[in-house]
Amino acid sequence: MNASRSDLISALQQFHRRHFQSYQQQHHQPPTVEHDSDWPSPCEQGEVKNGETAHWQPVPCEPPLDFANIEQALELELHPDIKTYFGSFFCANLAAQASDGKLELLFPWSPEDFERLQENMLGHVWMKRQLRQQETVFFAVTDIDDVILSVVNSTGEIWAEKVGKKPHRKIAGSMTEFITSLEPVV
C-alpha cells in the first residue's frame, strides 16, 4: 500500500473513531441508523430494535472495492484518492464541520449501494464531459444549496462546485488534508 493510500485510510479511520466517540459521549450509546430491510448493510451491528433502528459502525471493505468497471466505462483511470475514499469502508453518511461550514460525507453503505454510487459517478463524469469541464467526482454535499465537494480527477485537489458548473473554490490540496481538517457533527 503506498503512502498516500495508507495516509488517507488512517485519516478516515481517525475521523470515524472521533465521530463514533462523539456520538457515544452525546447519546450514551453507539450510533444508530434507521433499518431498511431493502438496504441491509454489513455496518449494522446486533439486532434491529423495534424493527426500526440498528446500531452501526464503519466496516473495512476486504478486499477494497473495485472500480475497474467504471474506469473501463469512462475510459479513465480514477484518481487513487477517489478509489481509496469510496473503496475502503462501508459506512453511513457522516456529518462534519469544515472551516467553511457543515457538510455530509458520502460513503457506500453496502455492496448494492456501491453499485448505485458508481452509476451516479458515471452520470456526473459524463455530465462534466458534455459541459467540457474538467472531470471531478463528488464525495460530499454541503449545507449550501447545489454546492457539492469534489475531487478533481487529474490532481486529487478538493474543490467546491455547484452542480453542473465548473469548480469554483479550492478547499484542500488532497483528500487526506481535507479529512484531517474536519470535526465530527453528531
Rank of each mutant, 00 (worst) to 15 (best):
H35S: 11
L149Y: 07
V186C: 12
H16F: 15
S174Q: 02
S41E: 06
I179N: 09
P64E: 14
E77V: 06
F138A: 14
T53S: 11
H79A: 02
H79L: 01
L149C: 04
L149V: 08
E34P: 00
P58E: 06
T142A: 05
Q13Y: 13
L8H: 03
G101Y: 01
V151M: 09
E71H: 06
L76W: 02
L76Q: 13
P31G: 04
I144P: 02
D38A: 15
L182Q: 04
E135A: 13
V137N: 05
E44I: 07
V33S: 11
T180C: 14
H168Q: 04
S110E: 07
I171E: 15
N50L: 09
F107N: 08
L12T: 10
F67Q: 04
E135P: 05
H168N: 01
S10A: 14
K162Y: 13
F15N: 02
N50I: 00
P167W: 00
A95K: 10
A160N: 02
T84Q: 08
C61D: 11
P64L: 04
L182K: 02
T142G: 01
V152E: 13
G46K: 03
H16S: 06
I148Y: 12
T142I: 08
K49M: 15
V151R: 06
F15T: 04
S150F: 03
V141D: 05
A172G: 03
W126C: 00
E104M: 12
P63H: 00
E112H: 13
M121G: 06
L149I: 13
K170T: 08
G87R: 00
S6Y: 12
M175G: 03
R18F: 07
Q133M: 07
T142W: 07
Q26V: 05
Q26R: 15
H55P: 09
L94R: 14
H28A: 12
V59P: 03
F139Y: 01
V33M: 10
P184W: 04
M127Q: 11
D36I: 09
D81P: 04
F90Q: 03
T142Q: 03
S150Q: 04
D100S: 15
